[in-house]
Design a protein around this nucleic acid. Structure first.
Lengths: 310, 310
DNA sequence: TCATAGCGGTGCATTTTTGCACCGATTTTT
DNA sequence: AAAAATCGGTGCAAAAATGCACCGCTATGA
């Protein structure tokens, strides 16, 4: 058996089509089609049904899946073992972090790192997908969580702050002195927020009028006077045209972690990257923890009472 | 990582050279050389030192070995799982058995099996190497043992008999009536026999004059009047020119087993083969258990006492 | 000492694998 | 209903892998 066939097999099982698998594998879709055909011929087993919408794994294919996954896990462990012993400051570091954090804050720090270590390459995944570090989908994760996975090691750097923001223009129009504010929410489709977060907010009566799935777009919407929104403080406080509402302290829902896999923590280039980025992020600590608000130019009073959502 | 690289790596570690590995893998030695070079370049690790006498695994290569072996074991299990579900009476069955048993007894039975099942192919390994059935070096083992491995399933068919034989001509020359016999031993270089077996035999004073490493050659040497030897009864009793000495019962050292791997026992073609060969071997039971001695034409008296070796 | 047998490595030809471009079918979106 | 986007599959050219034949080196055996 050519052992590489299983790698193709797994990609197709997971992706559901030869084209998606080809994308994941970085090869042409015709290659995947032919590799699966050859693999089935060799085993004399039908692994997939060919449908117009893609490949459907057969019962025999399902039957191979657990064994294939164990093999994949072993390859990943071997790979980490090899990479883990690399003492050189050269090579690739794969990094995953929230896109907004990258784009609006940390890209200059990444740039400084690559200048300091010209033989290290960064591959940045800012897609919000949760990378599997055991399979080296990423080597380092900068992640917002209160529950880091057991297999990962790293540092809890700081408490990540959010607050409610609006534009000056919006406030001038919607929050006149002596009148209750007539705000509406722009919400972020964030699965980690429950459906009641607006009701638990300082503006429970404000309706959710817009929904935006991308944090950068959310920021743009607030700046465009479309409503109020809960934004990370590093985003909101960096914009002169925006103002915090609810003069109370911002909320600290989750922590910001800097994580890698146990097997990679001694990899020289990864250690350097971790140390460098810990340092860089801690220099942004006040901004990230919400201690750099814009000076108030037009105060707004929130409704009495309720704590803001996480 | 191209997962097939590990298969090449393992073969080289085990074989000690690219040429031996190429033989084991069934490819050209230049392919192995290039594959290892490419693998090392990809990992940026030196796995082997190149010596004039072959490849020597480096510390980094040794470090990968256990992981690689686990991966190999998983592939083997997957392979068995796939083969184990094969309900057709077609395909290859790999069989291992002692060469002498094949050549001098069971080849006609194998021939009858392949006539009965024309779509099943037999690959016979009669090399005396102990095949690893978990890696499908063989699917079926006909094996002399008193300690079958736990992972294998099968039947203990019969007690395998050996006895001391000489040619008629030899006996006429060396065992005259009224005189102590002046025999010498031809021994088989069998690591499973201790060094004292001759002293524990009925002819402890007979010196070991010859050593022969191949059972077929041992038989030929006895027929050529070179001495006496312990032979399997199915060999000795089938030769009219030979006679048993020590008229006592032959010795039954080990049992004859018919074995396969647990995962393959439901493979249709393997079940058929096992049933067929069990039947065939049991039809040879009397011969294999030593109950078909040639009629004595010139009896010889052994020294009093000692049991024969296993 | 010399012949033989083993070894690793490589140029070139052959074979195999892969990518490209395209096809037709089906599903989804406008 | 039509356009667009997805899908699986395939002919042909390009790229990669492999085999063949050979080289030079070292170790072993006669």
């Amino acid at each position: 058996m050519n052992w590489d066939d299983l790698r193709i097999f797994l990609a197709v099982v997971r992706s559901g089509s030869v084209r998606a698998a080809a994308n994941a594998l970085g090869v042409n879709h015709s290659t995947v089609s032919r590799r699966i055909d050859a693999f089935e011929k060799k085993l004399e087993v039908r692994l997939f049904e060919r449908l117009p919408t893609g490949y459907l794994t057969t019962a025999e294919g399902e039957d191979m899946l657990q064994g294939a996954q164990r093999i994949e896990a072993e390859y990943a462990a071997l790979d980490r073992r090899v990479v883990g012993r690399d003492a050189r400051l050269t090579g690739l570091v794969r990094v995953t972090m929230p896109g907004a954090l990258a784009t609006l804050l940390l890209i200059p720090d990444l740039a400084r790192f690559t200048e300091a270590y010209p033989d290290i390459e960064i591959e940045l995944d800012a897609s919000y997908k949760v990378a599997d570090l055991s399979r080296r989908e990423a080597d380092v994760a900068i992640r917002l969580t209160n529950d880091p996975p057991d297999r990962l090691v790293g540092r809890r750097l700081l408490k990540f702050a959010k607050a409610i923001y609006a534009s000056h223009t919006y406030l001038a129009r919607r929050a006149r002195v002596g009148e209750p504010p007539s705000f509406s929410w722009i919400s972020w489709d964030d699965p980690s927020s429950g459906p009641q977060w607006a009701q638990n907010s300082p503006y429970p009566k404000a309706p959710i009028r817009h929904r935006v799935g991308d944090p950068a777009a959310l920021l743009a919407a607030v700046k465009a006077d479309m409503g109020i929104a809960m934004l990370p403080c590093f985003m909101g406080d960096a914009e002169p045209s925006l103002r915090r509402l609810a003069a109370a302290d911002p909320v600290h829902g989750r922590d910001l972690w800097l994580l890698t896999h146990e097997d990679l923590r001694r990899t020289a280039r990864i250690r350097k990257f971790l140390d460098f980025m810990a340092d860089a992020i801690l220099r942004h600590r006040d901004l990230l923890e919400g201690r750099r608000p814009q000076p108030e130019t037009m105060p707004a009073r929130p409704a009495a009472g309720s704590a803001a959502p996480k």
